Simulated assay, not measured.
Amino acid sequence: MALAGCQSSQTTQPGDVGTAQAQRSGFLGDYSQLKPAPDRDGVELYIDRSVDYTRYTKLLLDPIQVLATPAPGQPPPAPDAVARMSADFQQSLQRALAPTYQVVTAPGPDVLRVRIAITNLQTVKPPTGASDFLPIKALYNAGRAAAGTSPRLVEMTAEMEALAPDGRRVVAATATRRGDKTLPQGEQITWAELQSISDYWAGNFRSRLDEMRGSGTARASADE
């Protein structure tokens, strides 16, 4: 289970981002349970292994939050840009979950509630006339100069948790992943550069659910 619209040096290949801990936004509140996932770089994971997950085939997806900080002197991100990121990510999840898992609109005794946030975004004002511009400032890895002409890889981070019907957290994760496309420095970021990341995470989310339910316990084989 996985999820800074930021950019980093091309010296690293597309995909998961090393083993560095993702910058924590506060969305999850308590991060003490998280441990590096042995099968996914760039992911910290917690699974309550006392839970029988076979009962859960229904998911209640909270609206996906986009946690952004306006750049100095800039207004907050446009509501329509935030709404699009949230809606597109939710659609990625629904496509990945179907048809085995049912996305529902109300809680119940066999429903897991899922909370997700795209985190650590720093926004900027869109250029005049831009139609698909994602208002995210290009950031760089610590220790790397922001100047230069080498291509960059788009990167995104997120945090998630799943709650049992009684409100108890049973799964939590933070993740950072690079996209598949390099961008010249100075090129504006659009959602197309981040969509592949949300699609990957949605597929990972589905796979993790399958693994957790495969044995009737929280003994997720991929994490042992």
Rank of each mutant, 00 (worst) to 15 (best):
Y200W: 09
T176I: 13
D48C: 13
I136P: 03
I116R: 02
E187D: 14
I116P: 02
L34W: 10
Q7R: 08
L59P: 01
D210H: 07
Q185L: 10
A96T: 05
E159T: 02
P109E: 02
A78N: 09
D166Y: 07
D180P: 03
P109D: 10
V170A: 07
P184E: 12
N120I: 00
R113Q: 13
M1P: 06
K181D: 12
Y46I: 11
A164N: 06
L93D: 05
A78Q: 14
V103Y: 08
V82H: 01
E155M: 15
E193P: 02
N141V: 03
R49F: 12
A220E: 09
G18A: 03
T157E: 08
A164M: 12
T176C: 04
P70C: 06
I116N: 01
R168I: 00
V171Q: 04
K35F: 03
I136K: 00
V43S: 04
A81I: 10
R115C: 05
L134E: 06
A175G: 06
D180G: 07
Q185W: 10
Q13G: 07
S32G: 11
E187F: 08
T11M: 06
I116T: 10
V82N: 05
S32Y: 01
A172F: 01
L194I: 11
L34V: 07
R24Y: 08
V43D: 05
G216H: 12
S131Q: 15
K125N: 12
M85R: 06
V17Q: 09
A2R: 03
Y101G: 02
T69F: 05
P75C: 07
M156L: 07
S215G: 14
T176M: 13
Q188W: 15
L183E: 11
A145C: 00
V111S: 05
I64L: 14
T119W: 00
A83R: 09
A220R: 10
P184D: 13
R95K: 14
E187A: 10
P99N: 05
A68T: 03
Q74M: 11
A164Q: 10
A83Q: 08
I189L: 15
A2K: 01
G73P: 09
T100Q: 13
G29Y: 12
G73S: 08
V170F: 11
L93Y: 12
D39Q: 00
K137S: 01
A142W: 05
A147D: 11
S50R: 11
G73C: 04
T157S: 11
L139T: 14
A218K: 12
D88L: 14
T128Y: 14
D16L: 15
D110H: 12
Q10S: 13
V124H: 06
R177K: 09
A22N: 00
S196Y: 06
K181A: 13
C6Y: 04
I197M: 06
Q33Y: 09
Q10T: 12
K137H: 04
V51W: 09
E155Y: 14
L59D: 00
P70H: 05
G108V: 03
Q185T: 06
Q94G: 14
S8P: 09
D80G: 02
A145I: 04
K58V: 06
D199Y: 07
Y53W: 13
Y46S: 00
E193S: 02
R40F: 10
T157L: 01
A98Q: 08
D39L: 04
F205E: 07
I47N: 04
V43Y: 06
Q188I: 03
G5F: 14
I47K: 08
T149V: 15
N204D: 08
A117G: 05
L60A: 08
D88R: 14
T54G: 13
R208M: 10
